[in-house]
């Protein structure tokens, strides 16, 4: 078996060996539910779709994903187990991938557990299930992008709280870059190209079309590229900082 997969299994199991997994899942489901019904006006809209559910995911992830990613490397560096891991016969890339994929699979499990939402909307009406599936896929991809950012930042420090705060700030920047408020600031004076570039870096912009069920290859590529870039950075950071 590939070393990354062996590490993946260990990591995924370790989530469920501590209360972390259960706390995370319960909070995630509670928040996702209450945002959908109270803030999103799920019933009041009178439409059989899950838009109110998905539109809050970026904000939910903004705080929950850093809580998950902060320990990925910071904890290993703090406890010294990174020395054990890095002297076992596996490459840096395998280590980074194994850990990232386990965290991603875990968020996938949390996301999958929102299925009662899907059952409700199917019970109440006749939604476009293809669009819902696409939105789930988009949400998972966005979670992966948040996680990749968090994993890389976690490798820069031994302190999990520092990793959490930095990750929230960086992720907030990625969300905010597509916000009308920010774009209006630039639109008045900056060339259209710059405004477009900033907007194109936005998670919100890329997620908004997917959350409506429109799968655009460019959006998928965007999230894929963000994940790949941050994981590559993670490998570099780990190589430089692992022994400090």
């Amino acid at each position: 078996m590939n070393a990354a997969m062996i590490l993946f299994r260990r990591e995924l199991r370790s989530y469920f060996a501590t209360p972390l997994a259960y706390v995370f899942i319960v909070i995630f489901l509670l928040l996702a539910g209450s945002f959908t019904f109270f803030l999103g006006g799920f019933y009041e809209r009178g439409q059989a779709d899950l838009l109110p559910f998905f539109s809050f995911h970026p904000w939910l992830y903004l705080f929950l994903v850093p809580a998950l990613s902060m320990r990925l490397w910071a904890e290993e560096r703090k406890s010294g187990s990174v020395e054990l891991l890095m002297t076992l016969p596996l490459t840096l890339l395998q280590a980074v991938l194994g850990k990232f994929l386990a965290a991603w699979a875990f968020t996938g499990i949390a996301l999958a557990l929102t299925f009662p939402m899907w059952l409700s909307v199917n019970y109440l009406g006749d939604p476009d299930n293809g669009a819902i599936l696409a939105a789930y896929l988009g949400s998972l991809l966005m979670a992966g992008a948040f996680l990749a950012i968090g994993a890389c930042i976690s490798a820069t420090t031994r302190n999990q709280v520092v990793a959490f705060i930095l990750t929230v700030v960086v992720c907030f920047g990625f969300l905010l870059s597509g916000f009308p408020l920010v774009l209006e600031l630039f639109r008045d004076w900056a060339p259209q190209l710059l405004v477009d570039t900033i907007a194109s870096f936005s998670f919100l912009t890329h997620f908004s079309s997917i959350s409506k069920g429109v799968i655009d290859l460019r959006d998928l590529l965007y999230f894929g590229a963000v994940i790949a870039a941050w994981l590559a950075a993670n490998v570099v950071v780990l190589d430089l900082k692992k022994a400090e």
């Binding site: 078996m1 070393a3 062996i6 590490l7 260990r10 199991r13 370790s14 060996a17 501590t18 406890s79 010294g80 187990s81 020395e83 054990l84 002297t87 076992l88 016969p89 596996l90």
Partner: peptide, 25 residues
């Protein structure tokens, strides 16, 4: 290699930990 302080994964039990090492080895 036994690193200084014998670090390992605290949330695992010794059997699971050793099986993990055996797999990686």
């Amino acid at each position: 290699y036994l690193p200084e302080g014998a670090p390992s994964y605290g949330e695992m039990n010794p059997l699971a930990f050793l099986e993990f090492i055996a797999d990686l080895r």
